[in-house]
Amino acid sequence: MNSAVVVFPGINRERDMARALRLASGCEPAMVWHADTALPGGTDLVVVPGGFSYGDYLRCGAIAARAPIMDAVRAHAGRGGLVLGVCNGFQILCEAGLLPGVLMRNTAMKFICRDVYLRIERSDTPFTRGYNAGQVIRVPVAHGEGNYIADDATIARLEGEGRVLFRYADPGGALDPAWNVNGATNAIAGVLNEGGNVLGLMPHPENHVEAVLGPTDGRGLFAGLVDHFKQAA
């Protein structure tokens, strides 16, 4: 799996992401600068990592979404190429119009940095094939703006088309407002685009991939992606 990690000024999770990709795939990801206009040839997966691009000025992800490299990311997605956005990367993909909706300020008005439990809604996608539907995973979040909203028609469409892949849940997988840390609509933690090839999620699976740091529940996402490309080859 050849992956490319897009780096914007103010991004700070790109090394964690690159490490998780390398551990899962055995391939060194390309680090692509925001001012570049092309992705490396043969890129299978583009990852927009977390952080605080442009200091979250204007709106989270708004300025990064208009960076030169984003035309190449859009073209990659348009060809059906896989794109993964995590945390600020999710915000950037929404601002770029690659995913519907917006990530608003957490309803509790606080930056939240803790582990959460996510229920995997489907396992038949390239991003979640490493998990079972209904499985609960523990991964960290670290964000101030993760409260996913969209208009009612969009939410109905996302739900109807099975495009919600991750929801905040309790450790047993039940939906409970107390475990929906940021107040997201329908406890949505991660959504797919219409084509099923662009995923955005607020939590950080890349930070739970090594036993030395605790849980390894994030591995399934990366292992699933590697399997997806192996099978496609």
């Binding site: 204007l58 708004a62 208009r66 601002e95």
Partner: peptide, 9 residues
């Protein structure tokens, strides 16, 4: 339209 406002919200 292009930057200052997000028309969704």
């Amino acid at each position: 339209d292009k930057l200052l406002a997000n028309s969704l919200i």
